[in-house]
Design a protein around this nucleic acid. Structure first.
Lengths: 131, 131
DNA sequence: ACTACTGTATTATATGTGTAGCACAGTTGA
DNA sequence: TCAACTGTGCTACACATATAATACAGTAGT
């Protein structure tokens, strides 16, 4: 698993942690039953307050993504399911290839993010000012 | 131009507005010298507080993206430059094609976002827990 | 001059986020 | 039993975000 929140991105740290845990599960880096890092050591490692990690874990449990066992630890819920390895490989290739092409054309990472966001939102950017 | 902030995304509204204005400039929907919507009408249209729009404009001016003329309005700075139309068309095609393929493979929009983020950050997701 | 627009600034209030420190309670293994 | 770990709960404080209402000041057209 890879956790690396960015405090200056504007996105709350606990939300970033939630996203990254979900990502690890969907990519197969974390499997059902796997134990997550304990709150306090993880908070120390990420230079973040334990309450912040606890909040992320609490919300993840509320969403059914992980299971919290008092005194024992945090574990990936058994109901979670990863994307199949071959589909994951293909997907990673698609994303890597697209980003590579965009960067070669001089599109900045910031603008790549905005284009993906616009596309996912179904915005075609025809020039009309939405009313 | 197209402005549509999402209040429940976790990202501050004023940051979203900044991103979307930048996007409009880079895609050519807004050109140097163009006048932006006035603060109050825009705030009313987006159902957002005028102070929030004012903050976005103020920050954009601080970044040199727009120019604020007291009493006259907000205008796209002359120093800004859009991505060439043909490069923009190509880039849009790349993004649209990739997202289409990913969706066809059953990857959720949320996971697409995470994969793009992971790829842009240069994370390969090998499974090691960063220390 | 007047009016209607523009951005600018202020105060107050509410909410969410994050930090800090502390206490409590369940689990595990020596 | 004991010690060391785990999650849980609480209070207090600081800061950023967002709303609300109000006032001030510059610009442009009549």
């Amino acid at each position: 698993m890879l956790l690396r929140p960015n405090p200056s991105s504007g996105v709350p740290i606990y939300l970033q942690l939630m996203e990254q845990v979900k990502h690890s599960i969907e990519t197969g880096a974390l499997r059902p039953g796997d134990q997550l890092p304990a709150i306090r050591p993880l908070a120390e490692e990420l230079v973040v307050n334990p309450n912040t990690v606890a909040k992320a874990y609490r919300e993840l449990e509320h969403e059914g993504v992980i299971e919290l066992r008092h005194g024992a630890g945090a574990f990936v819920a058994s109901s979670t399911r990863a994307i199949p390895a071959d589909a994951m490989r293909a997907a990673r290739g698609i994303v890597a290839g697209a980003i590579d092409k965009l960067r070669q054309r001089g599109i900045s990472d910031e603008e790549i993010r905005r284009m993906v966001e616009a596309q996912l939102a179904g915005l075609t950017g025809t020039g009309a000012h939405r009313g």
